[in-house]
Amino acid sequence: MKIGLYFGTFNPIHIGHLIIANHMVEHSDLDEVWMVVTPHNPFKKKNSLLDNNHRFELVYRATENYPKIKPSNIEFKLPQPNYTVYTLAQITEAYPNKEFCLIMGEDNLKSLHKWKNYETILEHHHIYVYPRISEGKTETQFDKHPKIHKIAAPIVQISSTMIRNAIKDKKNVAPLLTQEVWEYIDEMNFYKK
């Protein structure tokens, strides 16, 4: 079984994330997509980040109706800050009969050469890339790399930051979230301050 790992803080998960995950599982050779909730990205300010378990609950609720898309909290048990190469090693060891691939936006592919042990990642895993509108160029070494697959997914211009700011400003963001996610955010009063 081939699993695509889609990493993110998912703060909160929105329909853009689901559109990409669903497109990847329906229009590539991936059997499932696991939404890996990352505990804390060192490049993001932590003050606006919901607790790990609340973000996992949001992902769980968002993916409940999609049998091929699953929530994953594997990184919660790993030492922080964590690197993708370590997560891949752990998850491969935990599920030896599954093949794991990375899902990333084109913007992340542009900085892949700066990732810790990126050569090891490419040696052992395929990478599925979805388009993003972003600045800069992809390293030429990745242009025709046999393990990098560009998937013509829809370009989604929705961000979790935009949603958090809109909630704080008392705007209606319900169309950008699944009903289950919106109800949980509203019930818990998340992002309102």
Results as ranks from 00 to 15, higher is better:
94 A>K: 11
129 V>K: 00
83 Y>A: 07
57 E>F: 06
175 P>W: 14
190 F>K: 13
61 R>V: 05
88 L>I: 00
79 P>F: 06
148 I>N: 03
67 P>W: 07
20 I>V: 08
38 T>N: 10
111 S>K: 10
164 R>W: 00
64 E>I: 12
44 K>L: 03
94 A>G: 02
144 K>H: 15
191 Y>L: 01
133 I>V: 15
20 I>H: 00
148 I>Q: 03
55 R>D: 05
54 H>S: 12
35 M>W: 04
75 E>N: 02
189 N>I: 03
113 H>R: 09
30 L>R: 00
109 L>R: 00
119 E>L: 10
91 I>D: 01
27 H>D: 06
154 P>W: 00
38 T>A: 13
122 L>P: 07
38 T>S: 14
191 Y>E: 02
77 K>T: 12
117 N>P: 12
158 I>P: 01
75 E>S: 01
106 E>P: 05
89 A>Y: 10
97 N>Y: 11
163 I>M: 04
49 L>M: 11
115 W>K: 00
152 A>T: 13
42 P>C: 05
3 I>V: 15
29 D>L: 02
183 E>C: 11
180 E>I: 05
108 N>H: 11
7 F>N: 08
82 N>F: 07
57 E>T: 14
134 S>K: 10
147 K>N: 13
56 F>C: 10
74 I>F: 15
43 F>P: 01
172 N>T: 08
95 Y>G: 01
46 K>C: 11
97 N>D: 15
24 M>Q: 01
7 F>I: 09
185 I>L: 02
130 Y>A: 05
111 S>E: 14
105 G>I: 03
176 L>H: 09
124 H>L: 11
10 F>L: 05
23 H>S: 10
90 Q>Y: 14
126 H>E: 13
111 S>Q: 10
161 T>W: 02
86 Y>E: 14
189 N>P: 01
159 S>I: 08
55 R>G: 04
68 K>M: 07
183 E>A: 15
73 N>K: 09
175 P>G: 10
80 Q>M: 13
161 T>D: 07
90 Q>S: 14
7 F>T: 06
48 S>Q: 08
124 H>R: 14
38 T>L: 05
84 T>G: 09
155 I>T: 14
77 K>D: 13
140 T>P: 08
155 I>D: 05
51 D>H: 15
176 L>I: 07
157 Q>M: 13
106 E>G: 09
111 S>N: 12
35 M>R: 03
78 L>A: 09
145 H>L: 07
18 L>Y: 00
64 E>W: 11
153 A>E: 04
44 K>Q: 03
114 K>S: 12
14 H>W: 05
55 R>E: 03
138 T>W: 01
139 E>F: 14
138 T>L: 03
17 H>F: 02
1 M>F: 10
112 L>T: 06
136 G>P: 00
84 T>V: 13
40 H>P: 02
134 S>P: 10
130 Y>T: 07
9 T>W: 06
95 Y>A: 01
131 P>T: 01
87 T>Q: 01
3 I>S: 02
131 P>A: 00
94 A>W: 06
106 E>S: 14
151 I>L: 06
114 K>R: 12
30 L>I: 04
108 N>L: 12
14 H>T: 03
153 A>D: 07
177 L>K: 06
36 V>W: 01
104 M>C: 03
